[in-house]
Simulated assay, not measured.
Amino acid sequence: MPKFIAVDFFCGAGGTTRGLIDAGGYVVAGIDKELRCKRTYVENNSNEYGDREPPLFLARDVFPRTDAYPAGEQTELAAELAQGIEAARRRFPGVPLLFAICAPCQPFTTLSRNAMSDRRLEKRDRDSNLLCAALAFVAEHDPEFVLSENVAGISDPRFGGIWAEFRRDLGKLGFVTGSRTVCVSRFGVPQFRKRSILLASKRDLTAASHLADLLRGELLVPEGDPDAPAVDVQSAIGHLPPLGAGETHATIPNHRTRSLSELNLKRIGVAKPGETNRYMVDTVHGDLSLACHQRIRAKGGGFNDVYGRMRPDSPSPTITTRCHSISNGRFGHYDVKQLRGISLREAAALQSFGDDYVFHPTNMIEPVARMIGNAVPPRLARFFADYLVGSLAR
């Protein structure tokens, strides 16, 4: 019997689902509109209980259909989801249900709204309501647990109080909730990545040891995994064979790097692990810094991480959807003999995916990088799923 059955809303390429399965769960379905994620999700996440099949991939829109938004598919999704959950409950009677609701983080980032088109603004505003849309399914199926992960800034009032509203609505549905901003490096993930975590457990089923007060008004959220040692970059990716810029390994899936211009090869060639990009001002090749950076530095500012190399002896910087590009962060490989940014395989490892987790299409960089950068680290999802199941009063 699994420890719990689960549904993964906004599943993407499956980071949360991988963590849920690793925690001993049976995942009924992953829900995501992005069909490009389907092959990666299904081929990497077979359940280990019951039918041992992968979860259903439901490519549905969670919003209800209205005249103003005819693309909504909430009714169709509800019917498909109800069928899958009912089948799982029959197969595993008495096993608790967990909903993972990790909505896309883009609506809660600091990208200037002035830089977006009207269409993109409309999509961002709609996506900011994804958490509330998922509450309809929580109300219908009454899971014992809810797990939500998002960017650290989601609780900022400038994003409309969506995090606090989501938490209040869960409270109205009988949950005790807790929220905390954590760094994933404290959970065995080899990466500095701050995230907001919201946990919810049915109030009348929650053990006192997991509550912050006697009034049962606050669920404790751990700030780290005491059993997970810190993992540095070299420990996470040092086993992978060397590559050059623009090369693809013949047998290791996704061990593929982006090509570099002659100028960027010079830049990364003189970069040292962990240093800022101020090295570019004075090199054997002359001043290699960008004109725009020179102007910003003259005003006392700067983008100090771009064109830099990672430190081998500490966790990596945050892995983003542009993690393959040295011009978008400190994404240069720590080995000074390798003149390149990290590979997609290395980025996945820094997100705590196993080397056998293959992202498709394997012959492309941009879509795979987006999947990896947007993913919830599997180790993080595994820890909090375990923690929630352990919160049940025995």
Results as ranks from 00 to 15, higher is better:
Ile101Arg: 03
Ala103Pro: 00
Pro104Gln: 05
Pro104Asn: 05
Pro104Ala: 08
Cys105Ala: 11
Cys105Asp: 07
Gln106Thr: 13
Gln106Asp: 12
Phe108His: 00
Thr109Tyr: 07
Thr110Ser: 12
Thr110Met: 06
Ser112Thr: 08
Asn114Ala: 14
Asn114Trp: 07
Ala115Phe: 03
Ala115Tyr: 02
Met116Ile: 07
Ser117Pro: 01
Ser117Met: 04
Asp118Ala: 14
Asp118Arg: 10
Arg119Cys: 03
Arg119Met: 11
Arg120Val: 06
Leu121His: 12
Leu121Tyr: 08
Lys123Val: 15
Lys123Asp: 12
Arg124His: 11
Arg124Ala: 13
Arg124Cys: 11
Arg126Gly: 01
Arg126Glu: 08
Asp127Lys: 07
Asn129Asp: 10
Asn129Val: 04
Asn129Gln: 15
Leu130Met: 10
Leu130Val: 12
Leu131His: 14
Leu131Met: 15
Cys132Asn: 15
Leu135Cys: 07
Leu135Glu: 07
Phe137Cys: 00
Phe137Asp: 01
Val138Trp: 03
Ala139Ile: 00
Ala139Ser: 13
Glu140Phe: 00
Glu140Arg: 12
His141Gly: 01
His141Phe: 14
Asp142Phe: 00
Pro143Trp: 01
Pro143Asp: 06
Glu144Ala: 13
Glu144Ser: 15
Phe145Leu: 08
Phe145Tyr: 13
Leu147Gln: 03
Ser148Cys: 15
Glu149Ser: 00
Glu149Phe: 02
Glu149Leu: 01
Asn150Tyr: 06
Val151Met: 07
Val151Trp: 03
Val151Asp: 06
Val151Gly: 06
Val151Asn: 02
Ala152Asp: 04
Gly153Thr: 03
Ile154Ser: 00
Ser155Val: 05
Asp156Cys: 04
Arg158His: 09
Arg158Ala: 05
Phe159Tyr: 15
Phe159Glu: 05
Phe159Val: 11
Phe159Asn: 05
Phe159Arg: 09
Gly160Glu: 08
Gly161Met: 09
Gly161Cys: 10
Gly161Arg: 05
Trp163Thr: 04
Trp163Arg: 09
Trp163Ser: 13
Ala164Cys: 00
Ala164Gln: 15
Ala164Ile: 08
Ala164Gly: 08
Glu165His: 08
Glu165Lys: 09
Phe166Ala: 12
Phe166Arg: 03
Arg167Cys: 13
Arg167Ser: 13
Arg167His: 09
Arg168His: 15
Asp169Asn: 15
Leu170Val: 14
Gly171Trp: 11
Gly171Ser: 14
Lys172Gly: 01
Gly174Asp: 14
Gly174Ser: 14
Phe175Pro: 12
Phe175Gln: 11
Val176Ile: 12
Val176Arg: 11
Thr177Leu: 14
Gly178Ala: 07
Gly178Trp: 05
Gly178Ile: 10
Gly178Val: 07
Ser179Lys: 13
Arg180Ile: 04
Thr181Arg: 11
Thr181Glu: 15
Thr181Asp: 13
Val182Met: 05
Cys183Val: 04
Cys183Trp: 00
Val184Pro: 01
Val184Leu: 02
Val184Thr: 09
Ser185Asp: 06
Ser185His: 05
Arg186Leu: 02
Arg186Gly: 10
Phe187Cys: 05
Phe187Arg: 06
Phe187Glu: 00
Gly188Ser: 03
Gly188Ile: 06
Gly188His: 05
Val189Cys: 02
Val189Leu: 04
Gln191Gly: 03
Gln191Ala: 04
Arg193Thr: 06
Lys194Tyr: 06
Arg195Val: 08
Ser196His: 14
Ser196Asp: 12
Ile197Pro: 00
Ile197Met: 00
Ile197Gly: 04
Ile197Leu: 06
